[in-house]
Design a protein around this nucleic acid. Sequence first.
DNA 1: GCAGATAATCTGTATATACAGGTTAAAAGC
DNA 2: GCTTTTAACCTGTATATACAGATTATCTGC
Lengths: 238, 238
Amino acid sequence: MSSPPANGIRSQIAAYVIDQIRSGAWMPGDRLPSESQFMATLGASRMTVHHALRELTAQGWLVRRKGSGTYVAPAQTYASHYGHRDIRQEVESSDAAYSARVVAQESKAAGEDMARVFGCEAGTPLFHAVVVHCADGRPVELEERYVNPQVLPEFPALDLTQRTLFSCLMLSHPSREGVETIGVMLCNAAEQALLECDGATPAMEIIRCSWTGDAIVTHARLVRIGAMAYLSGDIGRR
Amino acid sequence: MSSPPANGIRSQIAAYVIDQIRSGAWMPGDRLPSESQFMATLGASRMTVHHALRELTAQGWLVRRKGSGTYVAPAQTYASHYGHRDIRQEVESSDAAYSARVVAQESKAAGEDMARVFGCEAGTPLFHAVVVHCADGRPVELEERYVNPQVLPEFPALDLTQRTLFSCLMLSHPSREGVETIGVMLCNAAEQALLECDGATPAMEIIRCSWTGDAIVTHARLVRIGAMAYLSGDIGRR
DNA sequence: GCAGATAATCTGTATATACAGGTTAAAAGC
DNA sequence: GCTTTTAACCTGTATATACAGATTATCTGC
């Protein structure tokens, strides 16, 4: 998409850099080789390298600092177009005390739906967590998440009351793509019990699936109620 | 934001082009002067012009076609990060028949809230519309919108059953910025009557305010129910 | 009048040079 | 050992040339 022709030295350099970032070889904040190093390695002139890197900077892949070097840009829109990121940060930014209750944290065989999502066979073990996030002790979000075991092998040892799965995945796989669906719903009995609400409480349902390159990283279903059941952000990139 | 330094010929060219687009002097699809013309007009070398235009292309402002010319890019993210655009198109894309009921289409004095939004004094006349959008005759979205009279003077004559205000505003002011808030809610009595639903139906509330340059274009409150009460889209720009 | 060949126009790419200016690490001085 | 100066390094900018390739309008010939 980014470079359909893919011919030309400049496009090749750009494609190479993007590949390195997509694969995770170069992480946000990492320093890239200098223009001179690229020049020597690839046999292209400095200006050609310069233009390639400059274009990637304009597209948001890189950050360049005069006198210092070229760096992989921090992942910004990793969670959503809207400002919601780590639920813990969201809760705490509203001057409420964050707490979490871990309902489940286990290895679970993929059902047919998750097998489709993760592109594996039904029965393949996936990591599975159910966490209730609370603000000042009151439940505000129910998180049910499946995680690819290969991308987060330390999953079983994580203390999910202290650190959200979201933040753990952000550290290990900061830049990834995904799809997100937002809807409204009413809670069923199980959800009512966990969120301590009744069946008339309107809730926001966020289903998010993200991946890096070709590996599905995680699939999450978030049910938000009360003050957390809204999203806000800028629209239009101009 | 785009060019804080603003010094340098290249930045000046870029700033000039962006200004022309922002102000509406150059509309999406319009053809820009050629590199040679810029060169002659601004006294810069062709490569300098070339790099400036190329950068704006990478940032999504322009589209360039070899052998043809440089054009203002079509506005893409004008409505939301998610795919929802014209409600009529959304309804029809789900193979349903679109219809609309115009509840109000008038000039209305700004209350204190809208005066704050539009940056005018309370009492200033604004265009005001309330429209119920239906899919196969069943209400799916309630739209209450205020429009700046200066940006859409033909408002009173519009047939809102045939053409949505959204599409009208898109034609006259295609590229604009804005803020959007999405939440969940339950309908009050008036909304229940218009949407033909009960008070237990969960609804999605979308409040959107957009502007061009420094003039507020429109403020809309959309209440969606049923199949329209969800949004879906890609996340992550990488 | 219409179709095809031709020329003009315009962007794409690669490369070269020259200098400006910020950053960083090494070297010199105390 | 610590501070200060210096030099090396790196990106930013502007400009020039040369050629490739696509598009569009013009001109020619039938």
